[in-house]
Amino acid sequence: MAHSLKPECTPLKHKYDACFNAWFEGYLSPVLADQAEPDRTRALQEKREEYDRTCGKVWEAYRGCLSGALTQKGLDDLLQQAREENPLLEPESAEARR
């Protein structure tokens, strides 16, 4: 797994990545992908709660560690500019991708 841009945060980042990866594996399980409504929405809700429960704390710790690092490297303005140009809050439609 790759390092954090702020070396002190790498251990927390690895912890968070490991947590996310474990959760993600379950998230992609065929059971969830192939379920019909309303079971799917319920399963989705459970998975979201599980994520918050298991990875929420380490995520916050990692985020806290990282804060300030972007400013220090002069990246926050560049990032802000990129977000304004293209927020990418939703996937582009299939048509737009072609």
Partner: peptide, 20 residues
Amino acid sequence: HVISVDVLNRSVDPQTGIIR
């Protein structure tokens, strides 16, 4: 040649289940 990877934001859409 990746030196670092950091996750800045991550969310799971409650309706679609899409992870951003």
